[in-house]
Simulated assay, not measured.
Amino acid sequence: MSPPELDRQPLLEGERYLLRPLTADDWSALYAVASDPAVWEQHPMTDRWRADVFRAFFEDALAKGGALAIIDKRDGAIIGSSRFQALKSAEDDEEEQSSVEIGWTFLSPRYWGKGANREVKRLMVGHALQSVERVDFRVGEANWRSRIALEKIGAQQTRRTELSKHQGKRVLHLVYAITREDFTNGPLSQGLE
């Protein structure tokens, strides 16, 4: 029996956070988080705090599907967003594993270092690995905050890199991955029943 098809816009609930599909009505609340330049200071697109730049990011998220709003269950506030993208079947992938990319994640700085990213990633990775064999993460080479966060949740840097361009400059992205085995034996499995 093959695994179920990945639902890229699930409702996922953890102890402190709820993830639900992003909607057009979330613009104001999400931009209130994204408008802080500190959120993007290590990201390759450091200007994403600007309304026009974030509007393009937001509209792309809605158009492609897979985008989730991250909600603090204590007060119902949107504190950030993440996405499931680049879903590949084993036939599509040169490594012959089905995979999905989790990325475009950002959180309000007041949630940094307090376990929010860990819980969000545990929910998303656990959900994805019910349907795919591997979860990939693409992160800008100079984005140390995200790279360290990925390593803390057990993601392993692969040998794959990707180049893109932003504002005429080449941007190197490193690819990290978590497989089903990594998840089962890694730090994200702690606290699972």
Rank of each mutant, 00 (worst) to 15 (best):
M1W: 03
Q9M: 00
L12K: 01
R16K: 12
R16T: 08
R20D: 02
T23A: 15
T23M: 05
A24I: 00
D26E: 01
L30T: 05
V33L: 07
A34F: 05
S35N: 03
S35E: 11
V39Y: 01
W40L: 09
W40S: 10
Q42G: 00
Q42P: 00
P44I: 01
P44A: 02
D47L: 03
R48I: 00
D52E: 09
A56T: 11
A56N: 08
D60F: 04
L62M: 06
K64N: 13
K64T: 09
K64E: 03
G65M: 11
L68Q: 10
A69H: 01
D75W: 03
D75C: 12
G80M: 05
G80A: 09
S81P: 07
S82W: 00
D92M: 13
D92H: 00
S98M: 13
S99T: 05
V100S: 12
E101H: 12
G103N: 04
T105D: 12
S108V: 05
R110S: 14
N117D: 09
K121M: 14
K121Q: 13
L123W: 02
L123C: 10
M124K: 05
V125F: 06
G126L: 01
S131Y: 10
V132N: 11
E133L: 07
E133S: 12
S146E: 07
S146H: 10
I148C: 08
I148R: 15
A149H: 06
A149W: 02
L150A: 13
L150G: 08
E151C: 04
I153Y: 02
Q156G: 07
Q157S: 03
E162H: 13
H166P: 09
V171D: 07
V175C: 14
Y176K: 11
Y176H: 15
T179D: 14
T179C: 14
D182E: 08
D182A: 03
T184K: 08
N185Q: 13
G186W: 05
S189N: 12
E193V: 07
